[in-house]
């Protein structure tokens, strides 16, 4: 569905530290190599509450295996993803496809997050650094001011076109 959740830098599922979700019957922790340490800390924190299952992943090549694993989980499971940005996005997507809601997922990102800007000139997205305030569209080269609003359909922040000081004005309607 077009309004299914997507993982972006300000996503409600992203946390600094995992927390124990009360009322769940099982915890599943999924971690790549970079997220292993955080996962281990939480595993010992959660010990003695509910059963915990751990899945180690490497990268996209594990897609099919992760999918089968997610689909085999029962209702009432809480999912914890501890991984670098690319892997977290992949697992998150597979989770949503398997029917999970944001309420059932917590994500800890190891390393930098990626942000994308949706160009209002050519309607393409461009990746930007986490703290960037403006950018140049990677497709049409328009200068874009990065707005605070995010579209889960366009999977990017709004990029308002502007003409940088000193540049020739382009004619358009």
């Amino acid at each position: 569905m077009y309004n299914s959740p997507v993982l972006f830098d300000k996503s409600v599922t992203i946390v600094n530290q995992f927390t124990v979700r009360n009322g769940r019957r099982k915890f599943v922790i999924i971690a790549d190599q970079s997220g292993y340490e955080k996962a281990e800390i939480f595993t010992s924190e959660a010990a003695g509450t509910v059963p915990v299952e751990f899945l180690a992943i490497r990268g996209v090549e594990d897609g099919e295996r992760i999918k089968r694993f997610l689909l085999s989980q029962t209702m009432g499971t809480q999912f914890y993803i501890s991984a670098a940005w690319g892997n977290a996005v992949m697992v998150f997507k597979l989770g949503v496809e398997a029917g999970l809601s944001e309420d059932e997922i917590q994500v800890v990102i190891i390393g930098p997050k990626r942000r994308y800007v949706y160009c209002m000139k050519c309607f393409e997205v461009t990746g930007v650094a986490e703290k960037a305030e403006s950018t140049e569209c990677g497709h049409c080269k328009a200068s874009l001011e990065i707005g605070p609003f995010y579209s889960i359909v366009r999977e990017g922040y709004i990029g308002y076109p502007f003409i940088p000081a000193g540049k020739e004005e382009v004619v358009g309607s």
Binding site: K121, S143, P161, F162, V170, G172, S173
Partner: peptide
Amino acid sequence: NYETMDVWEP
């Protein structure tokens, strides 16, 4: 509109 902000804003 946002699409032509570079034109009308200034």
